[in-house]
Simulated scan of single mutants.
Amino acid sequence: MSSQLPVHPFANLLPNLTEVELDELAADIALHGQREPATVWTDADDVTWLLDGRHRARAAARVGAELRTLLFEGTEDEARSLVMSLNVRRRHLSPSQRALAAGALARRQRGGVGGQSAGLPDAPTQAQAARTAGVSERLVRDASAIMRNGDEGVIRAVANGEMSVTAAAATIRATKTDRQAATALFLSHRRSSSSDSWLTPGWVIERALACLGRIDGDVAAAPELNVPAAWSLTAAEDALAVPTWANADGSPSRLWINPPYGLAGRGPQDWTQRAVAEWEAGTVESALLLLPARPGAHWQQELARFPRLEFRGHLTFEPGVGNAARDRWDAGTRAEAPFASILVGVGVTANQLHRHFGDVGVVFVSYSSSGSPATA
């Protein structure tokens, strides 16, 4: 069958392969033939669409090979589910990339893009799209906000893995203005030289959100406001100087804390002591603290009564606004941190840490003198 089939919009919801990846696929097809057939589907108007395999079609065309296809005979709903299950689970997409695809899928209406008929059924709900993509409904809501308010630059940054859904949505929420202003802020964040922050990987934030249930406050917020918190305190607000870390209405907060690691040589000590004090006072319900692994540090020993997760390997932190490493990051260089990281749960159980992070690290708890696990 000819490789010049129209690509169904379902298939175009997902990020494209890079040119290098496409060249590699074309070379493999030239050498070994097409290993897996592309999937086609015929709609109610008798139009045959390329439902899955758009990259195989392009690669085959590059080497002059005939595209092998397999006809899918399911319904439109089944066709949509097939595309998501084949692509989202076959390719190594991040939760943010899957959420973006699900958000786009949830917003599709009959008539397609620009009013052009595409044989599409009414869009699924965000909950349905989230289940199909294997992500949380909260991430799909953020992705839908990006689709509504962001422009192509922001959308492609998320689709290509350069920015997390949570970071992009936070940028848009921070402006509370139109999409042009949101885009301008995003671009200014990419160019600015106002700080030297390091941003928590988006996948860590997404899991932290699921672990805590919600994030009320980010008390050591980066200028990018990349954490989906109800309120944030940046360096300008000086979280250590404010009287309380409770919510504005006085209720106990749930916090994400990724503090500066080298403040006047003291490391995170002031931050960890403040977090514990707020929790003991009842103004903080729970908190997750992302910290460097420093077993001999006094502040880490003081946290021993709380469960902690030690990440396997080293995390890759994104250089933030003004960081000297930003240019290398934008050029495609992704370097791991030179230190190991831990995640401490204050007011969070070991089971909660294990449930949400157990596949990426090991959870440790301290034991009391009686031989039973210590409880904070």
Rank of each mutant, 00 (worst) to 15 (best):
P6W: 13
P9S: 15
F10E: 07
L13W: 04
P15K: 02
T18A: 05
V20Y: 07
V20R: 01
D23Y: 12
E24G: 03
L25N: 00
L25T: 15
L25C: 13
D28Y: 13
A30K: 15
Q34T: 14
R35F: 14
P37Q: 15
A38Y: 06
D43L: 13
R58Y: 10
A59R: 14
A61L: 12
E66L: 13
L71S: 12
G74Y: 12
G74D: 14
E78R: 13
R90K: 11
R90L: 04
R90V: 11
R91F: 09
L93G: 03
L93R: 05
S96M: 08
Q97E: 00
A99W: 01
G114L: 03
S117C: 10
A118T: 07
G119M: 03
A123D: 07
R131K: 12
A133K: 02
G134H: 12
V135L: 02
S136N: 11
S136D: 12
E137T: 13
E137A: 08
R138F: 03
D142A: 05
A143R: 10
S144R: 11
I146R: 09
R148N: 14
D151T: 12
E152S: 10
G153P: 12
A157D: 10
V158Y: 02
A159E: 04
V165D: 12
T166L: 03
T171W: 01
T177E: 14
T177K: 14
F186H: 09
L187S: 08
S193R: 15
S193C: 13
S193Q: 14
S197V: 01
P201Y: 04
W203V: 15
R207P: 01
A210R: 03
A210S: 07
C211W: 00
L212G: 04
I215P: 15
G217E: 04
V219Q: 03
A221P: 06
A222T: 05
P223K: 01
A229V: 06
S232G: 14
S232I: 01
L233S: 08
L233P: 09
E237N: 15
A239F: 02
T244V: 00
P260I: 00
G262N: 07
G267V: 00
W271M: 08
V276A: 02
A277N: 10
G282D: 09
T283F: 03
A287K: 07
L288Y: 02
P292M: 15
P295N: 06
G296W: 00
H298S: 09
E302A: 05
A304H: 07
A304T: 11
R305P: 09
E310H: 03
R312W: 06
G313L: 10
T316R: 09
G320V: 00
G320L: 02
G320P: 13
A325R: 12
R328V: 02
A331N: 15
T333D: 09
S341N: 10
G345A: 06
G345V: 00
G345D: 02
V348E: 02
T349W: 10
A350R: 15
N351K: 13
N351D: 04
H354F: 04
H356F: 04
V362Y: 04
F364Y: 05
V365Y: 01
V365G: 00
V365Q: 07
S370E: 10
S372T: 12
